[in-house]
Every structure is written in C-alpha cells, then in structure tokens.
Simulated assay, not measured.
Amino acid sequence: MAQVRARGARRLAGRYGILGRPAVAVALVALLVVGVGALAWVAAGQRGLVVERVDEVAEEPAGATVESEEPAEPEPTLVVYVDGAVAAPGVYELSGAPRVNDALVAAGGLSEGADVSSLNLAAALRDGEKVHVPVEGEAAPVADATGSADGVAESAVAAPVNLNTASAEELQELPGVGEATARAIVEDRAAHGPFTAPEDLMRVSGIGEKKYAKLEGRICV
C-alpha cells in the first residue's frame, strides 16, 4: 500500500513539474534576482563614494583667503633741465636713479666744443636739477649760498678749499672773499693756530654768520 502511494506522488510531481523543468526555471529566476540586487547595491555604494569625494573637494576650509597679486609700483621718475653744449637742450624726465651722464644722453649727447672736465658724469641727479655743459674756454660758474654752482649740478662744483693749507690767492676764489679777507684769514691762522672746524672761520675779523653761510660747503679743515 505504501509503495502504491509513493508511486502516485512521483507521478503527481512529474505531472505538475514540481521536480521537472519548471523548478529549474524558478531557481534560475531567483539567482538572477539576487545577482541584480547585489550589483545595484555595489553601484549605489560607489555613487555614494563619488559624491562624498566631490563634496570634499568643493568645500573650502573656513577662514581661507585667496591671495591676489599686488600691482607693481611704478618706477620713480625725476625731471631735470639740460642746457649748454648739448645737441638738444631742454627738460627731460628720467626714471630710476639717473646720473649726470644719463641726462646728457637724453639731451642727444654733447655738441661740438663741449667741455665736461668740470662735470662729474657719475653724480646722482635730483628732481628739478639743472645740468649745464660749458663750452671750451667758458668761465667756471660761481657757487651760490647753498654751495651749488649756478647752472651746474651740485656734484660738479670744485673741491672744498682747506682753510689750513690754502694760500691767500686760493682763498680769494671763494665767494665773498677778497684780498683783505684772505689776508686776514692767513694772519689769524698764523697767530692762533690751525682751524679745527669750518665754523672757526667766524673768529676772523670781518666774517660773521651771514658771510659764513655763503662759504659753508665750500671750505674744509
């Protein structure tokens, strides 16, 4: 009796496909669903990582400042007037740290007969300065109260006169010093000894503060 029931059950299973090809199809569908779900889970995880990394790059730390390049400062310039024995006398604007020679070049160079023996071509220029180039045989300019020569860059003025070694004739080359004053300086030097400072010149009779102001910068000891 039991054997008959078993055979009947197998017949039913075979008839309705419980153990046949329909069962295999169901198993394959189940595996496919599981595989698709796994792939979807992995893809979702990767998308999350990409979004997180993009957010990290896009965010800037709090308080961060963007450095901007500062504009370069314009190069300083100065204006000088060049006249005398040059090709093109006039007012010129020079940049940087120009020298007397740069002013002469800007004026087109020297003209025929120019005499630069009294000029210091390497001297630095100042804004508003005048540079005069004398011609051969032209008298040397006379220094004013500031110690600079009229029409010539201050650096081109002759070397100061030493009060302790200059002769009476050399002292007379100073502005405002005539024969009598030069003789008084020599006599004072012989009587009281050498001068220890240029200001000591005011101990000489006839030389006060006003006359000394004209000589300051032109004398030394």
Rank of each mutant, 00 (worst) to 15 (best):
E67R: 06
A40F: 10
L32G: 04
L49W: 14
E59S: 05
V26D: 10
V51S: 12
R53M: 09
A38I: 11
A64I: 03
G48M: 07
E52N: 07
E67C: 00
L49Y: 13
E56N: 07
G37R: 14
G48R: 03
L49N: 10
G45H: 06
E56K: 05
V34N: 02
E59K: 09
V26C: 13
V34D: 01
T65N: 02
A23Q: 03
G45Q: 12
V24L: 08
E56Q: 10
G37H: 05
V66Y: 06
V54F: 11
E52H: 15
Q46V: 15
D55R: 08
A23P: 01
L39S: 06
V24N: 06
P22A: 01
V54W: 10
E59H: 06
L32Q: 08
A43V: 15
A27H: 06
V26H: 10
V51Q: 15
R47E: 10
E67P: 00
A44R: 14
T65H: 01
A38E: 11
L31C: 05
V33R: 08
Q46S: 15
D55A: 12
Q46A: 14
A27N: 00
G45N: 03
E59W: 04
A38H: 08
A43N: 14
A40S: 08
G48Y: 00
S68H: 14
A25N: 09
G37W: 10
L28E: 10
L28Y: 08
V36I: 12
D55P: 01
Q46W: 15
L49K: 14
A27F: 12
V36W: 12
L31D: 06
L32C: 10
V66N: 01
A58I: 03
P22I: 01
S68Q: 15
A25Q: 13
V33W: 02
V29E: 09
A30Q: 03
Q46K: 15
R47P: 02
Q46T: 14
A43E: 15
A30N: 06
V33P: 01
S68W: 13
D55Q: 09
E60P: 00
T65A: 05
G45E: 11
A44H: 09
A25W: 09
T65P: 01
G48C: 03
V36F: 05
A44K: 14
A44V: 12
A62R: 11
S68P: 04
A64N: 01
P22H: 00
G48T: 02
V51N: 15
T65R: 11
A62L: 05
P22F: 02
A27Q: 10
A25P: 02
L28Q: 07
P22T: 00
P61W: 05
G48K: 02
R53N: 01
G63N: 11
L39I: 13
E59Q: 08
A64M: 03
V33A: 11
A38R: 08
A64D: 03
V54C: 04
G37D: 05
A62D: 08
A64K: 04
P22L: 00
V36L: 14
R21G: 00
G37N: 12
V26T: 11
E56G: 03
W41F: 06
G35W: 12
A38Y: 09
A27M: 10
A23V: 02
A44P: 02
V51W: 07
A64Q: 04
V54Y: 13
D55L: 07
E52Q: 13
E67V: 03
L39T: 13
E60W: 07
L28A: 05
A62E: 04
L28F: 08
E56F: 04
R47M: 09
G35Q: 12
V33F: 01
G63K: 07
A38M: 13
